[in-house]
């Protein structure tokens, strides 16, 4: 290997410094958006235990800091990416259990960003949801889909039944109270992603490492979201797994 001239050496050093500098000073500005890989579409993707512990001393109804997930990249997105297309669903509100899409409108967590997403929930099994819902039917706020009317504090159709007393799904014992029962059949969440693609989501659990309802206990770590989804490209009429 040739020896570097002193000038070249300094050039490298200054470039390195410059790079470090710009990185530091623009920490909150996300990098350019990565393209969505074709391989992400039309296949069943499973996400396990997406979430993080609630703040120490949180009360049940305290609003929580939102968390974000990119369905198109199949990875969590940091809050600094709020005003970008790099997330498609948010979880916020009580126990971070209310879902929303990524939309630029006021009131959405992505307000002021480029997002054109939305969300809705259907009273149908995941496998039976094949036709993609009309764009006009998607709801564009945040924190919209959570508790179901079949349980306590229901907010319309939701993806989980909150058993306040432990008497709807349990025996009323201490350990059966205040359980969030994800409704695994008869509910499907449909999302228009930030960039206008579509996803259908089957929620599985909000308890960590616990996909079996038998393990949904009051003291099981929560909220950690497990779910399955399928992406369809913008312009598609149906959800297909190929």
């Amino acid at each position: 290997m040739k020896k570097l001239s002193i000038q070249t050496f300094y050039l490298f050093i200054s470039l390195a410094l410059l790079t470090a500098c710009s990185k530091n000073s623009t920490e909150d500005v996300p990098e350019p958006e990565p393209p969505v890989a074709d391989t992400m579409f039309n296949r069943l993707i499973t996400v396990l235990n997406f979430g993080e512990a609630l703040a120490e001393g949180s009360q049940p109804l305290d609003p929580q800091l939102p968390i974000y997930y990119s369905l198109e990249q199949n990875q969590p997105a940091p809050a600094t990416y709020k005003q970008t297309n790099r997330w498609d669903i948010s979880f916020n509100g009580t126990y971070r259990s209310f879902m929303g899409g990524n939309n630029s409108i006021t009131g959405n967590l992505g307000a002021g960003g480029p997002g054109k997403g939305g969300i809705l929930i259907l009273a149908k099994n995941f496998e039976e949801v094949t036709t993609i819902t009309a764009d006009a039917d998607f709801r564009t706020g945040s924190g919209l889909i959570g508790t179901d009317d079949s349980g306590a504090f229901g907010q319309g159709l939701g993806y989980y039944l909150y058993d306040f007393d432990g008497t709807i799904k349990g025996d009323g014992s201490y350990n059966s109270q205040h359980i969030a029962w994800v409704i695994q059949s008869g509910r499907t969440v449909v999302v228009r992603t930030a960039r206008g693609n579509y996803a259908k989501i089957k929620m599985l659990s909000i308890y960590k490492d616990a996909l079996n309802p038998k393990d949904w206990k009051r003291d099981a770590p929560h909220p950690y979201f497990s779910f399955q989804y399928v992406l369809a490209k913008a312009g598609s009429k149906t959800f297909d797994i190929k």
């Binding site: 009580t94 209310f98 508790t147 229901g154 319309g156």
Partner: peptide, 17 residues
């Protein structure tokens, strides 16, 4: 017919109530 509000109760954030 487009309403998503099934009842008027607790406002969890932006759902209505």
């Amino acid at each position: 017919s487009k309403t998503t509000l099934t009842k008027i109760g607790w406002e969890s954030g932006s759902n209505g109530g």
